[in-house]
Simulated assay, not measured.
Amino acid sequence: MSVQKLDAAGKKAGTVSLETRDLTIRFGGHVAVNAVSCAFKTGTLTAIVGPNGAGKTTYFNLISGQLNASAGQVLLNGRDISRLQASARMHAGLGRAFQLTSLFPRLTVLENVRLALQSKRQMGLDMWNIWSSHKDLIARAEEVLEAVALTAKRNMYAAALPHGDQRKLEVALLMALDPTVYMFDEPTAGMSVDEVPVILDLIRMLKTKTDKTILLVEHKMDVVRELADRIIVLHNGTLMADGEPEAVIASPVVQQAYLGLAPVGEAA
């Protein structure tokens, strides 16, 4: 089936920073992601939506290197990174946040960010390095914590943070890595109503950085409507629609078959 192009996708100015070409993965006889080709530009936020089992997280895993593709390519700034491991893709400029937080639970908030900065500079993860010899790292870590409103909790262990603050810390780790592409997989999952706005504010802040690209897997359509410049829809691992949010959300085909919603103007 051909992809529904609903209005002009990716109208914002910017060069293509990330691209997948015929990206595919098979598990036995099941094709979980089926020849997905899509290009993402700097300065844009693309929401990836679809029903449960549509292949959204699997697509993310293929891009970030948690899974090896059966076929196809992933290109970052024109460079083919398809054969790189996840850690090498991270150093190349892919920053991935997961549905579940990926922190060092027995280290403090500040130590978590400091280690991310060390990793970015390829200094290794030696916790026993003398802090005073890396004053620039500490200063930068403090800046990142201030940006995510965690300065007051800098000396708390990550494991002791409330869930919402753990998600904020995970965003801080991504910011410390300073990737070209930010990838958020359901960033508000498991969060209370009061916690959600904090994460959304952080993503809004990242959107102001016009040299960055943001990919967002999210099932909350109010979040998608507010943040996305573009929506792509996956169904059974296949790219089914691609366009500006209003056009995609209003499409009867997308609403009925892929989002599980009633068409606009009809009762749910």
Rank of each mutant, 00 (worst) to 15 (best):
K5A: 11
K5M: 13
D7L: 07
K12T: 08
K12N: 14
G14D: 07
G14A: 08
G29W: 13
H30R: 15
H30W: 10
V31A: 13
V31W: 02
V36Q: 14
K41E: 07
G43Y: 02
T44K: 02
L45I: 12
A47T: 05
P51L: 14
N52A: 10
S64Y: 13
Q66H: 13
Q73F: 12
G78I: 12
A88N: 13
H91L: 15
A92L: 13
F98N: 04
F98C: 03
Q99R: 10
S102P: 02
L107D: 05
T108W: 03
L110Q: 09
L125A: 08
M127R: 10
M127H: 06
M127T: 15
S133D: 14
H134W: 09
H134K: 14
D136M: 04
L137G: 01
R140S: 09
R140E: 15
R140C: 07
E142M: 12
E143I: 03
L145C: 11
V148A: 04
L150S: 12
K153Q: 12
K153D: 10
K153T: 12
M156E: 14
A159V: 11
A160F: 06
L161E: 07
L161W: 08
G164S: 08
D165R: 00
Q166H: 04
R167I: 03
E170H: 10
E170G: 00
V171L: 07
L174E: 00
L177P: 04
P179M: 00
P179C: 03
V181F: 04
F184Q: 01
T188I: 04
G190D: 05
D194H: 11
E195V: 03
P197Q: 08
I199F: 07
I199G: 03
I203R: 02
R204D: 12
R204V: 00
L206W: 00
I214K: 01
L215M: 08
L216F: 05
H219I: 00
M221V: 02
E226V: 11
D229Y: 03
M240W: 02
E244V: 12
A250L: 05
P252D: 11
P252M: 06
V254W: 03
V254T: 11
G260P: 06
